[in-house]
């Protein structure tokens, strides 16, 4: 069994080593891209079943973002939705025999966390300005500045470790059980892994939303405005 903590390149493109998580991610990107293209080619006012599922997904993402951030979900919809969808599909890719989910490798989780970290900076500065964003580190008092800085870093690391630990451990346990007990014994664990993967995708996406929401100034969403006006 491969060591999940180590990663070996499958091939090289020039000096760049191409590892298995990268290849699986490409496959996921291709699948999601093709599916999205095909599914959204002929969108109509009166939706098909597939379109209804897609709209339900998008509106659910927007609803979650709106509830957490209490603001307009439109700027964050793509980021949060992509993170959730990618982690979900990546976690569920373990169902395919011989495929390790990219999220079971810390590089993928770190890449996702890095993107979230950059998004926090970008949306925080974009919302409050540089001075305003930096001023949030002095809240509630300037004494908290070191702790807030450390918090920014640690919570990013917590995103990485939480996702990596859960997915990797699931894969690790299934591999061990599979090697010990045979073909059908790991199936309940795999089903549990599906649930874990879904929950981890949701947690990662919600935490990213919470972190971004904490960084941006609170702005009422158009929906909230409408609700108030009514």
């Amino acid at each position: 069994m491969d060591n999940p903590l180590s990663i070996e390149p499958l091939f090289h493109i020039g000096p760049v080593p191409i590892t298995q998580p990268v290849v699986v991610t490409w496959a996921i990107m291709l699948a999601l891209g093709v599916f999205s293209y095909v599914a959204t080619r002929h969108l109509r006012i009166v939706p098909t079943k597939t379109q209804t599922v897609l709209e339900l997904f998008v509106t659910t993402i927007e609803g979650q973002v709106r509830d957490v951030m209490n603001g307009d979900p439109k700027p964050y919809r793509t980021l949060i939705g992509t993170i959730f969808l990618f982690i979900l599909v990546a976690n569920w890719s373990s169902l395919i025999p011989g495929i390790e989910p990219p999220t079971a490798h810390i590089e993928t989780d770190a890449a996702l966390a890095l993107i979230v970290f950059v998004a926090i900076l970008r949306f925080g500065i974009g919302s409050r300005g540089v001075r305003g964003y930096l001023a949030t580190f002095a809240e509630p008092t300037w004494v908290m500045i070191p702790l807030n800085i450390v918090e920014q870093i640690t919570r990013t690391f917590s995103l990485i470790v939480r996702l990596f630990g859960n997915v990797m451990s699931g894969v690790f346990v299934i591999s061990i059980v599979l090697s010990l007990a045979g073909l059908f014994v790991p199936i309940p664990l795999m089903a549990l892994d599906l649930l874990t993967g879904t929950v981890q995708a949701y947690i990662f996406a919600i935490l990213a939303t919470v972190f971004i929401g904490a960084a941006v100034a609170e702005t009422p969403s158009p929906q909230s405005k409408e609700d108030i006006s009514q």
Partner: peptide
Amino acid sequence: TLGLQTVNVLILLWILARFLF
């Protein structure tokens, strides 16, 4: 791998933004 995955996720962001969301 970290760099490639970062780029991959960014590309996926663009793809899904363009073709899905």
